[in-house]
């Protein structure tokens, strides 16, 4: 089967959030956010009150998927950076492994500054994501092999009943 589902733990979430805050500030951006390649929003920082971040996340993933398809037709592995220029706002999108970093900025910043700051953040975010993957692997390893660990909460989903699901549809 393809990639396992993404799991986000409290500790790494805080680190990602902190890095997005740092980037938001240093790049003079309006919004910085991180999206899973499947279109799920992971974290968003900045002026998000009037922004439909869920839709934006899904369209960003669609955009990356479409340009990725174009890249393959050209024999490229991926296009790792996308930039959209508008009259007021601009969007800078970059691939970080299996997730996507998005920076929205206006005339208070510049493409050069955003690119510079994004480069540093991509490194840091990659390391955090790597740690999450390791954690997920460890959590899945059977105990006794040194893999089972006490850090993660026990999965709350192991005891889902049909009744729980029925209630969703009230």
């Amino acid at each position: 089967m393809p990639d396992p589902g993404l799991i986000m733990y409290e500790e790494e979430f805080k680190q990602i959030d902190a890095e997005l805050h740092r980037l938001h500030q240093q790049a003079n951006a309006k919004v910085t956010f991180l999206v899973d390649k499947n279109g799920q929003l992971i974290a968003a920082v900045g002026e998000t009150e009037n922004l439909d971040t869920t839709s934006l996340a899904s369209l960003t993933a669609g955009n990356i998927a479409a340009t990725g398809g174009m890249a393959k037709l050209l024999g490229e592995k991926d296009f790792s950076i996308l930039f959209h220029e508008g009259e007021r706002d601009n969007i800078h999108i970059s691939l970080v492994g299996r997730v996507i970093l998005v920076v929205i900025f206006d005339q208070r910043s510049s493409l050069g500054l955003v690119r510079l700051r994004v480069k540093k953040s991509v490194e840091i975010l990659s390391q955090i994501l790597q740690r999450i993957l390791q954690k997920v692997d460890q959590a899945k390893a059977p105990s006794g092999t040194g893999g089972g660990n006490k850090e993660q909460p026990k999965s709350p989903f192991a005891e889902i009943t049909e009744d729980d699901i029925e209630k969703l549809f009230g």
Partner: peptide, 13 residues
């Protein structure tokens, strides 16, 4: 695949 966020306490499918 599903995205389970323990921090935001969300499951996305």
């Amino acid at each position: 695949m599903s995205f389970i966020n323990y921090s935001a306490r969300e499951i996305n499918c």
